[in-house]
């Protein structure tokens, strides 16, 4: 598992991700995500492992 705030392995990161931030790094492979925020949600896509994560209010 990887930190969604910095992309480091979970054990190497002290927990930099905040509730007010969408994911910027893939929790599965640690690669950078293409993250698009919209007024009522956000979508993140990983070009590495193909993960797509979508959140709606």
């Amino acid at each position: 598992m990887f930190c969604t705030g910095c992309g480091r392995r979970t054990g190497e990161c002290g927990g930099c991700g905040r509730d007010a931030d969408p994911w910027h790094y893939c929790p599965d492979c640690g690669r950078w995500l293409a993250t698009q925020v919209t007024p009522t949600g956000w979508t993140a896509r990983c070009r590495g492992c193909g993960l797509t994560h979508e959140v709606r209010h």
Binding site: D19, A20, D21, P22, V37, G41, W42
Partner: peptide
């Protein structure tokens, strides 16, 4: 401004 901002998340509009 309700909901999210440009790259960060806000309160829910509700």
């Amino acid at each position: 401004i309700t909901g999210n901002y440009l790259t960060t998340l806000g309160r829910s509009p509700q």
